[in-house]
C-alpha cells in the first residue's frame, strides 16, 4: 500500500517523519508540523515555527476489538495531553503540545534538544539496539563517539545540580496534584542553555501513565519508584537520590513531613499496599 495516496493527513504526516523509537504501546517519530514558507522565497535563515516536533503515535492494536481499541487510544492520548496541560499551568517544565489527533491516536509535542538524565549520568541511552533491529535504516546512533567525553560538557552543570533540578521539578508537579506514574531517569531530559548567560533546564517527559491525585500515598509511591529506578540504573546512587529529596523538601515546604513519613512506610512494604483484608 502506498501511504501517500490512500491515507489520512495525519498518517501522511507520520509517513514522512523519522522513527526514533518503537515500543509496544506507541511509536515515537521526529517530524515537522509546519512547513517553511513558499512565499516569499525563504531567505536561508530557518523559520522558527518549522522546529521539529516529537510525534507519539499510539498505533492500532490488532489484538483488541476495534471499538475498545479506539476508545482506549482516545482516552490515553487525551489523558496525556491533559496532564501536560496541567503541568504547564503549574509552571512545571514539560514539552509543550503542538497537535492532538484523537481519531488517529497522535500526540505531537515540542522536541526537546537535549539528552536524558539517564544518559548524562552514564547509564547509557535507552533502547537504541531495539530501534536498529526494527528499522535498520534509521539514523545511526550519534552517541557512540561522544560517550568517551564528559557527557555534561556544554550543559554548564554538575551532577548535584541536576539532582536538585529533579527534586524541585517533581515537587512543583506534586504540588499541582499531578502524579507522573513512571518517574525514571530516562523520563527526564536536560535541555542545554539557550544562551551563554542562561542555565540548563530539566524537563519531565512521558506523561502516558500520569494521573491526578491529592493523596500523600500516591506522591510517596511516585518518589519511591524513582528511588528504585536510580538504584537499578546508576551505581552508588544513594547520595544522588538524597540530593533529589533535599531539593524536593525545599520546594514542597510543609507538605514534606507527611510525604517523607509515608515514603519510609512505602520503602518497607514496596509500591503496592497490602491487599489482605
Amino acid at each position: 500500500m502506498n501511504p501517500e495516496s490512500s491515507s489520512t493527513p495525519t498518517q501522511r504526516l507520520i509517513s514522512r517523519a523519522t522513527l526514533v523509537s518503537q515500543g509496544a504501546e506507541a511509536a515515537i517519530y521526529k517530524g515537522e508540523l509546519h512547513p517553511p514558507p513558499i512565499y516569499p522565497v525563504p531567505s536561508g535563515n530557518r523559520d522558527h515555527d518549522s522546529e521539529p516536533v516529537l510525534i507519539k503515535y499510539r498505533f492500532h492494536k490488532q489484538y483488541r476489538h476495534p471499538t475498545l481499541d479506539a476508545s482506549l487510544t482516545k482516552s490515553r492520548v487525551a489523558g496525556e495531553a491533559r496532564a501536560i496541560g496541567r503541568c504547564l499551568r503549574a509552571g512545571v517544565n514539560v514539552p509543550g503540545i503542538r497537535m492532538v489527533d484523537l481519531q488517529e491516536g497522535v500526540l505531537a509535542i515540542e522536541w526537546i534538544n537535549g539528552k536524558s538524565v539517564r544518559f548524562l549520568l552514564g547509564g547509557g541511552a535507552e533502547g537504541e539496539e531495539e530501534v536498529d533491529e526494527v528499522h535498520g535504516d534509521v539514523v545511526e546512533s550519534e552517541e557512540t563517539d561522544e560517550a568517551e567525553e564528559d557527557p555534561l560538557k556544554g550543559y554548564n552543570i554538575t551532577q548535584d545540580d541536576i539532582m536538585q533540578l529533579i527534586g524541585t521539578e517533581i515537587a512543583k508537579m506534586h504540588e499541582a496534584d499531578i502524579i507522573h506514574g513512571d518517574l525514571t531517569t530516562s523520563n527526564m531530559m536536560l535541555r542545554p542553555p539557550s544562551a551563554p548567560d542562561k542555565s540548563s533546564e530539566l524537563v519531565l517527559i512521558d506523561f502516558g501513565l500520569a494521573y491526578t491525585s491529592t493523596l500523600v500515598e500516591d506522591k510517596a509511591v511516585d518518589l519511591y519508584v524513582l528511588e528504585r529506578a536510580f538504584a537499578s540504573t546508576h551505581p552508588a546512587s544513594e547520595p544522588l537520590f538524597a540530593s533529589v529529596l533535599k531539593a524536593y523538601e525545599r520546594q514542597a515546604g510543609k507538605d514534606w513531613k507527611a510525604i517523607s513519613r509515608r515514603l519510609d512506610d512505602v520503602r518497607l512494604r514496596g509500591r503496592k499496599r497490602s491487599m489482605v483484608g
Binding site: V77, I84, G85, G96, I97, R98, V100, L102
Partner: peptide, 9 residues
C-alpha cells in the same frame, strides 16, 4: 499554544 493545540481534548 498548547491549549490551542489540545482544543479537541
Amino acid at each position: 499554544v498548547s491549549s490551542v493545540s489540545m482544543k479537541s481534548v
